[in-house]
Design a protein around this nucleic acid. Sequence first.
DNA 1: ACAAAAGTGTTGACCATACACCCATGC
DNA 2: GCATGGGTGTATGGTCAACACTTTTGT
Lengths: 240, 240
Amino acid sequence: MTKPVVKVKQNLAQFKVGVDNVIFSVDTINNQLLILLVKREEEPFKEYWSLPGTLVKYQESLESAAYRILSEKITVNNLYLEQLYTFDHSSNPQFDRYLSVSYFALMRYEDATITKNIKSVAWINLDAIPTLAFDHNSILEYGYQRLRNKLEYSPIAFDVLPELFTLYDLYQLYTTVLGENFTDYSNFRSRLLKLGFLIDTGEKAHKGAGRPATLYRFDTKAFAPLKDKPLLFISHCSLI
Amino acid sequence: MTKPVVKVKQNLAQFKVGVDNVIFSVDTINNQLLILLVKREEEPFKEYWSLPGTLVKYQESLESAAYRILSEKITVNNLYLEQLYTFDHSSNPQFDRYLSVSYFALMRYEDATITKNIKSVAWINLDAIPTLAFDHNSILEYGYQRLRNKLEYSPIAFDVLPELFTLYDLYQLYTTVLGENFTDYSNFRSRLLKLGFLIDTGEKAHKGAGRPATLYRFDTKAFAPLKDKPLLFISHCSLI
DNA sequence: ACAAAAGTGTTGACCATACACCCATGC
DNA sequence: GCATGGGTGTATGGTCAACACTTTTGT
């Protein structure tokens, strides 16, 4: 960043800055991808659903604001959050200019609970998103694209899963976001294990009937050398 | 974006917004990747090199500001530009808060000329970047990562190349950015042609001795169905 | 004729896919 | 015993990297 220079102050725009979050949760049980939306109570776009957002306060960083939005609506243990894009809105020049910095977040549905006593906040299925306030539909679309890319190329799944998880948990996370037909479980399994950053803890998870599943742990150190390599989690060799 | 709501004005931060550009140019003749830097003439960081930046004026969008920086320093025909990241700087609370929105740009070195009469602006080899002002070294690093990713996964090369180009032009662009050993020319060639979005114009480029090269054109329509497919331009199937 | 630049072809090793099959547990 | 969920194995076709080879031009 270039710090403001004193002598050129006259033309400079003053900005208000808002943060809007695209918050995804993965419901692996019902195989749903959900978005957290809030119903607006004021004009403009009164009664429309919108992405949860806020204006940035003094003494609060952008990222803090993003986390504040989250914590005002839900409580969650494991999540992934990153900045998405900054949208510029050349609004009426008689008002302050307005910038919207969007963030996207991912978590498991089972792991997130909407704070009590908050009405007009809901998890809505990605396939059933209505027309949202402002340009939030396109922000959401942009966030969904980023989510898919991140899941394919980065180990964000392990920020979202608990410390110990089964390979089936992982697989379900992937299929819910990317669709059922990106690869079958058997190949997914051998691919991930071959990469060598999943540690067999020896512990087993018992889920009712059936053979108990091995619990794995993500090994950050073993993953480090692969950090800059592309295309780790899914295979996309076929060009068509 | 959520529009400012009137009743909660007291706590809100006011921002100045700056734009900083990471401007890459590819010198395919000398196989160099260059960055446009400017030498600061004021404190802080006087005499340090820095990324070209500016504060955003009234009536000017973020992207306009990014283009303004460019056009004040260089003239260029074909370029690719996109937003990179928004950096937050919780500076002294008695001053306005400051946000830096960074952009990255790519062009060919042959195609870009530094505007006359501008001193202390230079193309500097990526391998010889000094310590820059502020946190510009990390912004640059972030931009370089994005550049490599974009080149691998998106057709940005065709925004940078002229309308008609040879496959060797394209290959040199890739090797200069990604390094010599990502694939050899023969394989690069057959891969790209198999994808079917490069049109043989029939025209030939004569560069002194040697067989004349076929000039190709990028076919946007033929590319469209591949837009959302990952991993088009380089192969990364091998996991190690 | 020869060098230089462009373009083609071939091969072995490896990987992805699809699918069939085996294992461990609760009831 | 058997349904249920977890895990293993294998054959086939495709892809890629490496490298040798051919074609077309200028001098």
